[in-house]
């Protein structure tokens, strides 16, 4: 019962991420990379602080008691935001998305396979190899779609 719900949540999360990179790419092109990323994180911090303040059940551990390396996720988030806002106007959304996705996939399979960062170990089985091959195929298709569009654009300027 929980699994389908999680999938719906994940799809919404991904959809939101796509909408966000589209919006932030435009904003960054108009106002600057750091400015756009800064506003995104400030608003995110304000919103999640309010949510946490009113809705978080009390926990044994707090952000101040867990080992510090567990708090370094933000560094990766900031690097990602800066990279996207920098890259989208230069290489196009499709190419940037394909690159992000490749990195995401390889790393996430490594983390699961070895159980890095205190995550449960989920070894790679045959079906996961097939899944990876399918995802690579999908990435190639997206790239081809992008190339064909570029050729069309070059053939008919304006």
């Amino acid at each position: 019962m929980v699994l389908p719900l999680i999938f719906i949540l994940l799809l919404v999360g991904g959809a939101v991420l796509a909408a966000q990179s589209s919006i932030n790419g435009r904003l960054g092109a108009k106002t600057g990379i750091i400015e756009s990323a800064w506003l995104t994180f400030i608003m995110g911090a304000v919103l999640t602080f309010l949510l946490m303040f009113f809705f978080e059940p009390v926990q044994q551990a707090t952000l101040f008691s867990v080992p510090k390396w567990q708090l370094t996720g933000a560094l990766f988030g900031v690097v990602y935001m800066l990279a996207i806002v920098f890259a989208v106007p230069r290489v196009g959304t499709a190419a940037a998305t394909v690159a992000v996705i490749s990195g995401q996939l390889v790393m996430s399979l490594l983390i699961d396979h070895f159980g890095w960062l205190n995550n449960a170990q989920l070894p790679l089985g045959a079906s996961r190899y097939i899944a990876m091959a399918l995802l690579l195929g999908a990435i190639v298709l997206l790239y081809l779609s992008h190339q064909r569009r570029n050729r069309r654009m070059a053939a008919q300027p304006g």
Binding site: F76, Y80, A87, A96, V100, I101, S102, G103, Q104, I111
Partner: peptide
């Protein structure tokens, strides 16, 4: 951007 994508997975992890 690819490296930044790897970072996203580390963030999730």
């Amino acid at each position: 951007v690819l490296i930044a994508g790897m970072g996203l997975s580390v963030e999730a992890g």
